[in-house]
Design a protein around this nucleic acid. Structure first.
Lengths: 333, 333
DNA sequence: TTCATATATACTCATATTGAGCATATTTAT
DNA sequence: ATAAATATGCTCAATATGAGTATATATGAA
């Protein structure tokens, strides 16, 4: 986080992952989306666990030491990397989500912090419902679904649309980041979808599809494309972290040891993509025992100085993780 | 589920996973825990996605067609399989959780349905707090922690104990299945821990450790051991499904198309390992729009016949997934 | 010095949700 | 006819949540 911008660490191109220089050259020809998530090969001989491999790799490449680390998902679909179709190896990636305080990068030099919402412009509701949703996303998705010939399939997509993007009756669910991304991809509205169509055509020798101007323009408005399926991985991460925000104290790894409640709130808001009610947020974290006052106050700010708080680790052993999961141990007749 | 018993599908031994007959023979010598989760090698050439590989494999081996499927976790630690230390290949497993209605098994014949709580006797609180917790688990864990020499490490384990098994003040958290299992393993109280110690000694040529009688007896009371780290995988699954119970309608894949509310409640209770308040459960699922009445009634039962309900799919598009995740789309000043 | 503005903090109040129990309805077994 | 078992309906207190009002304490400009 810097100011109120949630950032992700990106590297410049995917080509590093490839084993041989020959493959690398081949990849660069296709790499019209040079922005990628940091990654590295897993070396079974060297790394005792997957997570240690991750730590080592990130430390070495970026100088960062990771705080909270959580395994996200393992991606193994064919054609995640179009080179596979041309006889390349099958790529299976184990994605991790890690939270770090932003620091200057000392790594190989191609790493960069980028605004998370550059990749998902429709996910940031802090300034209100993003206009692009009703201007482009909903109508174009609706059109795309309408022209599906198979009745069952059409109905299925209609339901997915309702679930992912909400309806009049149903609100927007901030955790369904992946569902939204996948719909946009399948509808061919996302940059990666256009790119992958080109690649498939090139490989199979068919003529390259020519998307019309509106399609291209929409794709550009729908954020920065990434290498391979990295944006899907990133969508998974955003959904996951949003899901955890409220019932596991994960955000504290993004804050200094002491902080004001407004700072804390801003981090939560940035990740959640929503504005929260300030007084209620205060009540929640204080009464919930998540933080405790230090007695010191912050001097930097404009108005009345805010008290500095710290995270209360004890909360971990005090209350069950899920605010509303299964009921606490109680036996009822 | 049969009656009120949640069941998992097991196969008879782990040896099938091995590539060559030679390795297989070697494995059988070590396989003193023949109960394993069903599994199979992933064949990149044949399987378009990991999940399709899973479906094919299970269908072919057991005749089951899977309903709800969810990726659990990818396990890649060294020495998940002790053979690795003797130069065997590194094993990385992608675990999946699938829900199916119990049907007769038509597969290779070694598959079997087993009570989930045979492997985690301390997780089933439906008949009250399991006695083993206070008779054996807590005191022996406490002893083990007390004899740790390093101060920081001891304190860390003490905190993990509080979080995993609760304290006077803090209730038992039904979702922390994995944390509990891992503590028991690290403390050497679980069958697999004893087995792995033997294997490590055999490989390194050291004399085999001789656990005392109490240790062996406790391990036996702590449930059936499984091959490799399969019980850890299973613990992950139980924790995951418990976490999802309350805010995603996953249980319906374990029920027939229509069911009584008590049937539904029994399934939730079996997985959660708790008894629930009947009237409140009814209120929850009806008012929550999860189910709708069919107008028909059940005739089998003893007392007043219960109405048959069905799952309301529409609920998926009506309300945000998380009962209490991030707030619904609302912008507040 | 004074006041407008910004921020922090405290408190109120209506509404919704949850935990627990009581009461009634409808069936089967004896 | 009655006891036992189960289903269903309703109440009530406690707690949590959403939204707002009120007060406190700082900065910066007039």
């Amino acid at each position: 986080m810097t100011d109120e911008v949630p950032r992700i660490l990106t590297v410049q191109r995917a080509a590093h992952s490839l084993a041989t220089p020959a493959q690398r050259g081949e990849a660069e020809a296709w790499a019209d989306s040079p922005v990628a998530l940091p990654f590295g090969p897993f070396d079974p001989a060297e790394h005792r666990t997957l997570e240690l491999g991750l730590h080592n790799w990130v430390e070495q490449q970026t100088g960062l030491s990771l705080g909270y680390v959580e395994q996200l998902y393992t991606f193994g679909d064919r054609h995640r990397d179009p080179r596979e179709q041309a006889g390349g190896p099958r790529l299976v990636s184990v994605g991790y989500l890690a939270l770090v305080r932003q620091v200057p990068l000392s790594g190989a030099g191609e790493a960069e912090w980028r605004n998370w919402y550059d990749f998902f412009p429709w996910e940031d509701w802090r300034e209100g419902r993003p206009a692009i949703i009703d201007q482009a996303i909903r109508p174009q998705l609706q059109n795309w679904i309408a022209q599906i010939s198979d009745q069952d399939e059409r109905q299925n997509y209609q339901e997915r649309l309702s679930i992912a993007f909400g309806t009049e009756a149903a609100p927007w669910d901030f955790e369904r980041v992946l569902e939204r991304y996948e719909l946009l991809y399948e509808a061919g509205m996302i940059g990666e979808a256009l790119r992958d169509a080109q690649i498939r055509a090139a490989i199979s020798g068919e003529p390259a599809p020519q998307p019309d101007a509106e399609t291209v323009e929409t794709a550009e408005r729908l954020g920065t494309p990434m290498a391979l399926d990295n944006r899907r991985v990133l969508a998974t991460a955003l959904g996951r972290i949003r899901g955890k925000l409220k019932y596991r104290p994960v955000v504290f790894d993004l804050l200094p040891p002491t902080f004001t409640l407004l700072q804390l709130q801003r981090v939560v808001e940035a990740l959640g993509g929503v504005r929260l009610h300030k007084q209620n947020f205060r009540r929640l974290v204080i009464n919930g025992g998540l933080v405790e006052p230090t007695g010191q106050r912050d001097s930097q700010s404009r108005g009345r100085p805010a008290e500095l708080f710290r995270f209360r680790r004890e909360v971990l052993s005090e209350r069950p993780a899920s605010g509303v999961g299964l009921p606490a141990a109680r036996i009822i007749g």
